[in-house]
Amino acid sequence: MDYMSIIVIILAVLLILAAFFVIRSKDLVAAVVASAVVSLISSIYFYILQAPDVALTEAAIGVALTTIFFMITIRKTRRDEE
């Protein structure tokens, strides 16, 4: 077990926990922030898997722009899951 595989396993656990939180959370803002965490960890994964182009795209689009679109939608509708 080198350091890299330990980091990858920790990130995988965080990724799955964040995905569960997206589905379970009653507060939509918290769910959207958790989905930004999923995007961030997948961006780190792309960098580890030797795909820097994709990592840059995911960091710019998945983390920033998608999150803000969800936030605007929640602001315009309602925050709690009925």
């Binding site: 820097p52 182009d53 990592a55 840059l56 795209t57 710019a60 689009i61 920033a64 722009l65």
Partner: peptide, 11 residues
């Protein structure tokens, strides 16, 4: 380098 039109536009 890594990057391009889509990434730069998003930034």
């Amino acid at each position: 380098t890594p990057g391009g039109g889509f990434q730069g536009g998003a930034i």
